[in-house]
Write a protein that binds this DNA or RNA. Structure first.
Lengths: 188, 188, 188, 188
DNA sequence: TATGAATGAGGGTTCATTCAT
DNA sequence: CATGAATGAACCCTCATTCAT
């Protein structure tokens, strides 16, 4: 019989429920109901609520990293920031629930999965930093000067994209992706 | 005897506790203990936990708006983005607990105080947008073209500042404010 | 208003419920219902189920020790074993629920309250040992030879009393206390 | 291939796990893991957890009864109490896990296997009573007077042995079996 | 103005049991 | 003969809230 993947069912339900009420406000009861499985099954597949959401965050950032990597392939340096920004916005738009979760949790340092999330966060910031460096060099600057662009700039870039994206999707959904992209990239 | 302001005592305790464990994880018990008052006093001074945190968020954004306003006074258009960015970073640095709370809550749409917070968020974004517009005009562009800079750009600007600031304070506290500012402003 | 002592209410209910189903089988729900208080009140008055039963056991052994002490006052050495045995049987009979609990738990070494219970167990065994020593000396033996009677003999004495008492009360309630006492004291 | 007896494997694991955490605290999961079989196998071999522990208790008391019977063979009346006491202590010492279980469960009247256990308990008490009666008669008393030694005395004797044995093994393991025996038999 | 004992709904988690394989 | 994914009732515990003082 074509067995469904129970783990994936649960992870998806966890994202959906937590997007509405936050992780603390997402009850295992409601997650189970949303997933269409018994509550006990959550604990058969994940050791705890913490472990479940660690997996949720891991998969979320992984998807984002993959989207960025895939976008950069074969793109010349000067176009890198726009193309990765577009890919990031696209990924966030397609997973807005996950985006809200990530925005809310990314700077919590008290979570059981803080370490996991930190690595994921850092890997996204590094990818964005690299895109910025590529453009910097393509604009005629030296490799050395590019090294002054650090992960902090990557974090700022990600913050700008996340801030714009959520403002867009939650409050101004009529805008086009291209327009949002322009506002992020050209104004300062 | 110099009477302390019980309300302020409680708000401060609420910020401190919630910064550690998030708002959901902040128990009224712990807030009362931290504030040094009995639990009943919380309910004497605030109608509910929601009302307490609505006040917390309101005061937080108010402080931020005031900091930005005060920074812009008498600053010519071209310098506006940098000066408001510096003021924002400074304000976030001085209230890092509040900054973490605001980052975690700003895109939650299910909170009882969502409306309050939305206005506050919007007012900050608008102030940042205006600084960007001033610089745009000061750079020789028309007022009309400046109107294409919307609140979404303000949200992106705020997201960049918040992302950089938390990355800085949580993971790279050795950097200087000026350095962080440069990374935010010059890289794209 | 003549406030009832909630703590005592809860302890009594805990003893009653645990006597029926053992400590593990005694649910906090049922204890609360039996005590006529809300479940939350259990946790307002005791930190945990473990803490509650630590208190239960402490009070139980304390009562037993007090009964033994009170019985020995002014009794000459040769009569000591019988009088303390009678007092012990009496105390167990009057608190048969507690007696069953103590019998079931006294040799568990994994409980959170094992230490507490151990001290209490030891203090009872010591009292019984002293009664045996007194009789030994009163029978004309030297103090030195009496020291060969150790706490282990006290434990054996207590085991004999508990074994006889529970056999009596659970399976042969028609016997008199004096008869049971005779069977314990004269048969070997 | 030398097939192992799965039932025995499970019973042994059940004893080991329950000795640590009590019967209520022994989970079928942990028993299965300890036995090295899948959880489903427990239910293939035993109808329920209750049935499994009924079997555990039955085998435990059976072993004890057999040890006592074997000890009394060919021993004259006056030596009977000491020899059966020694056999009992020896059996308990060799199965201390089982001894702790039996001590904790022997007076529980709510278990599904209470009936089973009661018979077993009674059969041990009867055997001990008979040893006491034999010695009584061998000491020159009439058969009739010996009949005043009832099962209650047997229960007391067993209680004394169990109490001394557990005190010995758990808290004073340096003592010799002979020493413990002396303390039980000669002090009152 | 302030207190803290009491509440009860709802939280995360465990676990004996079932059943399709 | 054996397995292990799945279940759901029941567990211990937390906590926002109330109210008599």
């Amino acid at each position: 019989m074509a067995r469904v993947n129970t783990k994936q069912l649960i992870v998806d339900a966890a994202v959906a429920v937590a997007a509405q009420h936050g992780i603390s406000g997402a009850s295992m009861d409601q997650i189970a109901e949303t997933a269409g499985v018994a509550k006990g099954s959550l604990y058969y597949n994940f050791a705890s609520k913490d472990a479940l959401f660690a997996e949720v965050m891991r998969r979320g950032f992984e998807r984002l990293s993959a989207a960025i990597d895939s976008a950069r392939e074969g793109v010349p340096g000067e176009g890198a920031p726009r193309i990765v920004a577009a890919a990031t916005l696209e990924a966030l738009r397609n997973n807005i629930d996950l985006a809200k979760l990530m925005a809310a949790e990314v700077f919590r340092t008290d979570r059981a999965w803080a370490e996991t999330m930190n690595e994921a966060r850092s890997s996204v910031a590094t990818r964005l930093r690299d895109a910025l460096r590529d453009a910097h060099v393509a604009a005629g600057n030296s490799e050395q000067s590019a090294e002054r662009i650090t992960e902090t700039a990557g974090a700022a870039f990600f913050g700008a994209l996340a801030g714009a994206c959520l403002d867009w999707l939650l409050f101004r959904p009529e805008l086009s992706l291209e327009h949002v992209l322009d506002e992020v990239l050209t104004t300062w």
